[in-house]
Amino acid sequence: MFGSIEDVKEKLTKQNYLINYRVATAVFLAAKLQKPLLIEGPAGVGKTELAKAAAGALDTSLIRLQCYEGLDESKALFEWNYQKQLLRIQANHLTEKTWEETRNNIFSEEFFLARPLLQALKAENTVVLLVDELDKSDEEFESFLLEALSDYQVSIPELGTVKASSIPIVILTSNNYREFSDALKRRCIHLYIDYPSLERELAIVRIKVPEANEVLAEKIVEFVQSLRKMVLKKPPSISETLDWSRTLVLLGADSLDEELVMNTVNILLKYQQDIKKVEERINGLLPE
């Protein structure tokens, strides 16, 4: 477990995940107050990575629940292995077993499929439960999740109440596709991760793409930072910076020039309008 804010920072840095003091405070509080941590921010700034790094730092496993439209309890919490149950019943028919025996048999652990949420609750040690892109799920699921996360226990009709043996660290991420209810927000520690500052981004590039030489890395980051100052439909985020750096390294580039940038800029920018905008003023944007 994390001892102090400094400790959080140190441990996550060891996982090659650089964080600032604000993020560290939020992670520390979430772990200490045993509240879910709701992370918001533009796509690709490392929200999911934070959860992975936290799991790595605590040397525990990461249980991931990817949300999508139509995700329901049975996929998130638990399911009976229906096919296996059917086979069992059919097999029992051929033997002399009574229905009572069969019934007790088919609702046992063997036929039970624990889904991420239950896995996290039943885990022996503290695990990190990542509920990714919660904004993509339906509102009903959100309120269901709320119930499970508020007292860390769920009831299963056949098995009784399952209480968390150790309270997991819960991390929820969102791209702000839709608004969450106030009830959910109230129960969470909130963290907004924005695009990093120049120094931090440079440090991230150095850690993640060590092959890029100093000068190139600096130029890459400087260029991306000035792109973010423009009014774009989708400004490039960290993951795009990293992809671009890797590409440039692969191409054997050691400095940026107009042609090279325009040939590879589609890695940074995902909209044709944005690319056009940048193309028009590429000269002014390139670092000397």
Binding site: I5, Y21, R22, T25, A26, F28, L29, K32, L33, K35, L38, E40, G41, D182, K185, R186, C188, I189, H190, L191, Y192
Partner: peptide, 28 residues
């Protein structure tokens, strides 16, 4: 929660700000 948070983190200005914002503010 904010009150509990600051007992955990201490109250130097930056930490204090971070702790309050993490617990009280839920929307960017």
């Amino acid at each position: 929660e904010a009150l509990r948070a600051i007992t955990l983190t201490g109250i130097d200005r930056v930490t204090f700000f971070n702790a309050l914002s993490a617990t009280l503010i839920k929307e960017q």
